[in-house]
Computed example of a mutant assay.
Amino acid sequence: MAIVQNWLPPSRENWELVCYIWQFFPVITAFQWLLDWYPQGKTSTNFRFNIPGAIGWATMESAGFLTLVYIMNALPKELGIEELPWGNWTMAGCFVIHYTYRAVLSPLFLNPSMSPIHPLVWTLAFLFQIFNSTAIGGWLAGYGPTTVHDWAGRFWVMEIGLVLWAWGLLGNIFHDDDLREIRRAADRQQRQEAEKLGKPPKSVHKVYMIPKNGLFKYVLYAHYLCEWIEWAGFWMVGGWHCGPARMFLVNEIATMLPRALQGKRWYIQRFGKEKVGNRKAIIPGLV
């Protein structure tokens, strides 16, 4: 049963329209190169209608994998496809695993705290997820490969892509946890001091330090870099012809690169150029 007729799941015509529009997303990110205003995370601002960090992140990010799972289950029935090949489900599984971690486990269970999110950022991120998951979901659920033969002859490339995807995900988790440890250490210190003084502990949601482990020795946004590696592997699994996977990687770079450069300026302003040292923003030795 369709949730929105011809849109969720999408008809082929509407899916092609979504994919066409989605390729122009980098144009929308142009404002990030011009403005340092980005009211989320370490650069969040006080605003009356801010959304609590954990709830905001979970709701905007979950839209993606929930949409994809629905399309994967609903669209084949509408197209009369009895069974999708294992390659399709493998890519869908990679997508769901990543966002189960990013949209559910991280904000709701792992992160000690999260800064509030501006409604505009939430809306743009939500739309990113809807467009992206519709493009990828449509390709995997019937408008891309539909038989095992469509995957034949490229198993070794898929294996390399899956290894790259897995290492990217593990690197993303590792560097995310290094950032969390900064908050956890600050929280432990606050609780110890509060216990000595007999006062309630202070919030640590605005405690920041320069991370130094793993790739953080070389770049300030190592978790971003690892996510690019992850989705490059995902594209490799789908193949060069997998337009939605390619657009996903390109669009992530388009929005995360200016964010990382902005973040580097923030680190320098907050901690000084000497403490930041020779670290690049996101690509070791380059940017």
Rank of each mutant, 00 (worst) to 15 (best):
I182W: 12
F49M: 14
I71M: 01
L124N: 15
L170N: 12
I55N: 00
V219T: 11
T134G: 12
L197I: 02
G233D: 02
R48S: 09
P119Y: 07
W57E: 03
N14Q: 13
Y143F: 13
W37N: 13
H98D: 07
P112C: 08
P76G: 02
P85T: 09
I283N: 04
N6S: 10
Q189L: 11
M114G: 10
I81G: 02
G144Y: 06
G263Q: 00
L127V: 15
P119E: 10
L140G: 09
T67I: 05
G238I: 13
A92H: 06
P9D: 05
D36Y: 10
A30V: 13
M72A: 03
V163A: 14
Q32S: 08
I21K: 14
W37H: 12
F31N: 08
K212M: 04
I160W: 08
D178L: 15
G93T: 11
N172Q: 06
S115K: 14
A63T: 09
W165D: 07
F47T: 06
A92L: 05
G171E: 01
Q40Y: 07
Q262E: 02
L257D: 09
L8W: 07
G171C: 04
V18N: 03
R246D: 03
L140P: 09
P9M: 10
P52D: 04
A103V: 06
W151T: 06
I81H: 01
L79T: 03
Q40D: 05
M247W: 02
F131H: 01
P76Q: 04
R246W: 05
